[in-house]
């Protein structure tokens, strides 16, 4: 990574949702707050891929949706090239929409079935004024289709004529055609069969390298995240519990939750650590006191039950929000 200022700096981001608890009688239930994202900070350098990994309900998707302004942030800052985007009005954010793009999990749901591929891809080009004449638009579409591994002849066809993998290529084409600076991919390959997933992962990696874009790659799949990322952030109940360069996080995890995640992956080759059966994640609507992971943690002590740990810089680009991080790293050494 370069020493230049990061492309994106997220500081203490919080996205809370207010909802009513189920009614227990005649009166409506009490108001409750679900802290989906509760104080997340990270930097993303130019050309860097940061993987965000965690289980359902950890808030990883909400981070992505908040940064693309699909959800309003409750507080915090997200500086994109030094400018806070969270406070921008829809109108003021519009010019940045081209630069910050999102790839979704379900290519079926995100393509309009009534539009041809040409119409689908022409729309963002026109909206952002990236080509003037019809010929220029078509040339740009054609080039982009080739880049994502599709024959430009498919332009005249409709989404239903494509397989899941091809539809995700079209979804990627729609993002790449506007030449973004930051791409947020949310479970971009999770709906695909494994043989197709590998093709699409290779494609995303190639496009990212060739264009030098920065990427937030959000996924529940640790293998996929390791493959695509330079750095990895692990989330648990609304907070980042560990951040590290990918080799470090997979070889020497410095948070007990990262350890549990890695130990839980079913391995094709034998030799996995036995899994400790310590229940399931609590709900973000009623997180445990202190460290949210303490009820499942084999290392938990009194301080873990009372005091929430903040991320501590461990050097070499890694940080861990664990009172016992030092002990964990000592063991691994």
């Amino acid at each position: 990574m370069t020493d230049a200022a990061p492309l994106l700096q997220v500081r203490d981001l919080k996205t809370h949702f207010t909802f009513r608890a189920p009614s227990t009688g005649v009166l409506p239930g009490p108001k409750r707050v679900l802290k989906a994202v509760d104080g997340v900070s990270f930097d993303l350098a130019e050309g860097e891929v940061l993987g965000i990994v965690g289980e359902s309900g950890c808030g990883k998707s909400t981070v992505g949706r908040t940064l693309t302004k699909l959800e309003p942030a409750t507080s915090g800052e997200a500086l994109f090239r030094g400018r806070d985007i969270l406070g921008l009005s829809a109108g003021a954010f519009r010019p940045l929409r081209r630069e910050i793009q999102m790839i979704f999990q379900d290519p079926f749901a995100s393509l309009n079935p009534r539009l041809t591929i040409e119409q689908t891809l022409a729309e963002p080009v026109r909206i952002h004024g990236l080509a003037r004449t019809r010929e220029e638009v078509r040339a740009r579409i054609s080039d982009t289709l080739v880049k994502v591994g599709l024959d430009p002849k498919v332009m005249t066809r409709y989404p239903h004529e494509f397989s899941g993998g091809q539809r995700q290529r079209i979804g990627i084409a729609r993002v790449m055609i506007v030449e973004p600076r930051l791409v947020i991919a949310d479970e971009a390959v999770s709906a695909l069969d494994v043989s197709i997933q590998a093709q699409v992962l290779n494609l995303i990696k190639d496009l990212q390298r060739d264009s030098g874009i920065s990427m937030l790659f959000i996924s529940h799949d640790l293998g996929v995240v390791r493959h695509i990322s330079d750095r990895v952030a692990v989330m648990y109940l609304g907070r980042i519990v560990e951040t590290a360069p990918k080799a470090a996080i997979f070889e020497k995890p410095a948070h007990p939750y990262t350890r549990l995640l890695l130990a839980s992956i079913p391995r094709i080759r034998p030799g996995r650590q036995p899994v400790v059966d310590l229940g399931e994640p609590a709900s973000a609507a009623s997180p445990p006191s202190g460290c949210a992971f303490h009820p499942r943690c084999p290392l938990a002590t009194d301080i873990c039950r009372s005091t929430r740990p903040d991320p501590v810089d461990l050097g070499n680009g890694r940080s861990s929000a664990c009172h016992h991080a030092g002990q964990l790293l000592g063991e691994a050494a």
């Binding site: 043989s195 590998a198 996929v224 990918k246 997979f250």
Partner: peptide, 8 residues
């Protein structure tokens, strides 16, 4: 085809 968490 499977990206594994144990290797790069």
């Amino acid at each position: 085809s499977i990206p594994e968490a144990d290797e790069d």
